[in-house]
């Protein structure tokens, strides 16, 4: 994955670069908005990481400038405070956002999701093994049989299936499915995953793998 980072703070851009390179990405860093825009328009990148607060240009300006040349390139925004920066129009210029501080792993997952977007996120139904989820009809079928899920269970499953094979941390899950930074009940994610497992998994077929200290990974796993 070819990544362009437009970030003026060297320390942040450094550790992101290191982190992404350890995940086998090719990373270019631009420290000013202007440089970033020219690089983005001339070279081919798979995804752009943009800090919202740059000294020379506002994140929204940079984004619109880039869009003029490359209208379809995914842009992920780094921001300090979601509620303050993200206004209604902001969501139209970036495709995803991450608030500081963030987990590198999470960042990588999101980047991958953004680049894969075309054929996964906007599909009406997602299929992982014997499990099919229809976002529009709001149905889940396992081996052809309909499964009844609560709202949050469905949302959780949807998120897992959209990021199949990726390691998702509790924080990421909490943020995406419950739109919360902090878990008010301390065990929200765990309890819902347990319920999902009860409904979906059998001795032979499991879907959710626990990765200790890191989170969970979703996939179709047969146990022999």
């Amino acid at each position: 994955m070819k990544v362009l980072i437009i970030e003026d703070e060297i320390e942040i851009s450094e550790f992101i670069k290191k982190g992404l390179e350890s995940e086998l990405c090719v990373v270019t860093v631009a420290h000013t908005g202007e440089l970033g825009v020219s690089l983005a328009s001339e070279c081919g990148f798979d995804v752009i990481i943009l800090d919202f607060h740059l000294p020379d240009m506002m994140g929204s300006e940079i984004s619109s400038a880039i869009r003029k040349y490359k209208p379809s390139i995914p842009i992920l925004v780094l921001s300090a405070e979601k509620n303050m920066d993200i206004k209604i129009d902001m969501l139209s210029i970036c495709d995803d956002y991450v608030t500081k501080p963030f987990s590198l792993r999470e960042l990588v997952v999101r980047l991958r999701a953004l680049t894969r977007r075309g054929h996964i996120l906007y599909n009406d139904s997602i299929k992982v093994g014997p499990l099919t989820l229809d976002s529009r009809k709001h149905t889940v079928t396992l081996n052809g049989k309909n499964i009844q899920l609560r709202n949050k269970e469905f949302a959780l499953l949807e998120y897992f299936m959209q990021h199949a094979e990726a390691v998702l941390s509790r924080e990421m899950i909490l943020e995406h499915v419950w739109d919360m930074n902090i878990d008010p009940f301390t065990n929200t994610v765990d309890t819902h995953i347990r319920l999902l497992r009860k409904k979906l998994e059998t001795r032979k077929q499991s879907f959710i793998q626990t990765i200790p200290r890191r989170g969970y990974r979703f996939g179709a796993y047969r146990t022999i």
């Binding site: 350890s22 607060h53 405070e81 303050m84 920066d85 500081k100 501080p101």
Partner: peptide, 24 residues
């Protein structure tokens, strides 16, 4: 508003750096 954003930014950015480096 500007002040809030600046405070937030100045506090969260170093934390992000710390966290990032520690993660690495």
């Amino acid at each position: 508003k500007e002040a809030m954003i600046t405070i937030s930014h100045n506090l969260q950015t170093p934390l992000a750096v710390i966290r990032g480096e520690i993660e690495l």
